[in-house]
Structures are given as structure tokens and as C-alpha cells.
């Protein structure tokens, strides 16, 4: 059940995208998100779809795996689509009570849905091809300039990578404790809201205890290896741009150009 969530999960295959510098992918994701908000007609979205399809192809992650990630935003998608569909003023198609559907509403709802789907798929391409550690490395380096104004970039990146690292561990732990309590006759599904909340206690208490235990263990292990913050710390694998990254930046520029062109159509 908990394995179903694919947003933010790394998919281990070898592809150009997997080997790319995380900064390139971060920047690319940003460019893509901006482009989605720039595009305002069918041509713009067609270009965005084409670009996404190409990137997914390059990543060698099965499309089915990505579509599964959309399940998580299904609810959000439904709400935003129906709001746009029923509440946009304009030329009316039909009306049921106070709800009316307009041509403008259909257009807006359609674009909104496409935008949201592309947004989620675009950013999941990044997380599927980049390990959390690479991602934080990339963020730390990209935001390094903030250190000059005393923003603790390294510490924040470290917190983030530890948090990300702990997600699968805690998921596994939850699964294990859940099974252990189910073996003692626990029932996490039936009953009303109060009953359900009550049945969570045997799950949450051990989970919190184990999270604290792991945190102290990790802190101890880090201290034992002389961790003292980011100052003077060097990397085993410093980030370095390669030719494929330069090619990617060129592709971004080309893509943004196309998007801007479609606005002029």
C-alpha cells in the first residue's frame, strides 16, 4: 500500500538523464515549470508535451511508472478542474441550477489539467532519475552563493538529505510495526473516525520511539566521524559539468525559444 507512492522515488536504470549533473536537472525542471505557465495556447502545450515525451524517452523510466505517480494528485486535479469548469464566466453552453458550463470554462479546465499533469510528471522525471543525495548536492552547490549572506545552506542541505534518506526507512518501519500489531489482532481499516484514530496509537507510539532512536544513533555516528558542519568540508565527488550538461542547457534555451514563439502565433 505504501509502496504505491512514486513521487520522489528514484528509479534505478542507467540513462543519459541519470548521469546528468543534478544542477542541470534542477535548472531544467525550473525552466519546464516556467514554460508551462508561459504557454497559453494549444501550440505551447503541444511543444511542452513533445519536450516531456522526449525527456521521458531519454530517462528510460517506464511511462506506466510515471502515470502511477499521478494517482497522488488525482483529488487535487478533480477539484481544480471542476472549479474552473463551473465557475468561469463567459459564453454559456448549458446550466444546471447555479452551475453553468462555459466555453471559456472548458478551455481553462482543460489547460489547467494539462498544466498540472505536466507539472507533476516533469518534476517526477527529475526525482526518478536523481538520487536524493545527488539532488541535495545539486541544491547545495546551486544555492552556495547564499552562504555569503549567512544562510546555512550546507546545514539545510544536510537536514534535507537526512530527511529524504529516512523516508524509506520509516515507511519500512511503519509497515513492519503495522504487521506486528496486525499479528496481535489489530484492525486499521474498519470503524469510525474516532475508532480509527484510536487504532493508530499502537502504530504511532512505536514509530515515534524508533524515529528518535534512529536520530540519536545517527547523531552519534556522525559525531564519531568528526562531523562539525559544512566549514572546510570537501566532497568525494565534486559536481562537474560535462558535455551532456552543456547540450542540455542548449536544449533548454531552444525549448524556451519555441515556447516564446508559440505565444506570438
Amino acid at each position: 500500500m505504501l509502496r504505491e507512492i512514486t513521487i520522489g522515488q528514484y528509479y534505478p536504470v542507467d540513462s543519459v538523464l541519470h548521469r546528468m549533473d543534478p544542477r542541470t536537472k534542477l535548472f531544467g525542471t525550473m525552466v519546464y515549470i516556467v514554460s508551462l505557465f508561459l504557454a497559453d495556447n494549444v501550440w505551447g502545450y503541444a511543444a511542452a508535451a513533445l519536450f516531456l515525451a522526449m525527456v521521458i524517452r531519454l530517462s528510460r523510466v517506464p511511462v506506466a511508472f510515471m502515470v502511477r505517480g499521478l494517482k497522488a494528485i488525482l483529488f487535487l486535479l478533480l477539484i481544480s478542474v471542476s472549479f474552473n469548469l463551473f465557475l468561469t464566466e463567459g459564453e454559456e453552453i448549458f446550466r444546471i441550477g447555479f452551475l453553468h458550463v462555459t466555453w471559456e470554462g472548458v478551455r481553462m479546465a482543460g489547460f489547467m489539467a494539462v498544466r498540472l499533469i505536466f507539472l507533476v510528471m516533469g518534476s517526477s522525471v527529475m526525482t526518478l532519475t536523481t538520487t536524493p543525495n545527488q539532488l541535495t548536492d545539486g541544491l547545495e552547490k546551486s544555492l552556495g552563493f547564499l552562504k555569503k549572506v549567512r544562510v546555512p545552506v550546507h546545514e539545510m542541505a544536510m537536514i534535507m538529505s537526512i530527511a529524504l534518506r529516512f523516508i524509506p526507512i520509516l515507511v519500512e518501519e511503519t509497515d513492519k510495526i503495522m504487521k506486528a500489531q496486525m499479528a496481535r489482532g489489530a484492525d486499521f481499516e474498519s470503524g469510525g473516525l474516532v475508532q480509527k484514530a484510536k487504532s493508530m496509537v499502537p502504530l504511532l507510539v512505536p514509530l515515534f520511539i524508533s524515529a528518535f532512536r534512529r536520530a540519536t544513533d545517527l547523531a552519534m555516528a556522525m559525531e564519531a566521524r568528526c562531523y562539525h558542519g559544512g566549514e572546510g568540508r570537501t566532497k568525494m565527488k565534486p559536481l562537474k559539468y560535462a558535455r551532456r550538461d552543456r547540450a542540455a542547457y542548449a536544449a533548454y534555451a531552444g525549448y524556451l525559444g519555441v515556447i516564446v514563439l508559440t505565444k506570438l502565433v
Binding site: 513492519k176 510495526i177 506486528a180 496486525m182 499479528a183 496481535r184 496509537v201 499502537p202 507510539v205
Partner: peptide
């Protein structure tokens, strides 16, 4: 069934609450 077939997990003390 689970009352008939008791299962003690590894490190079962982690499930105390």
C-alpha cells in the same frame, strides 16, 4: 487465523506502546 498462528517478529520489543 492470527489468533491461532502467533507471530513474533524480529526485535519484537520495538512494537511495545
Amino acid at each position: 487465523l492470527r489468533s491461532k498462528v502467533g507471530l513474533v517478529f524480529q526485535y519484537p520489543e520495538h512494537q511495545l506502546f
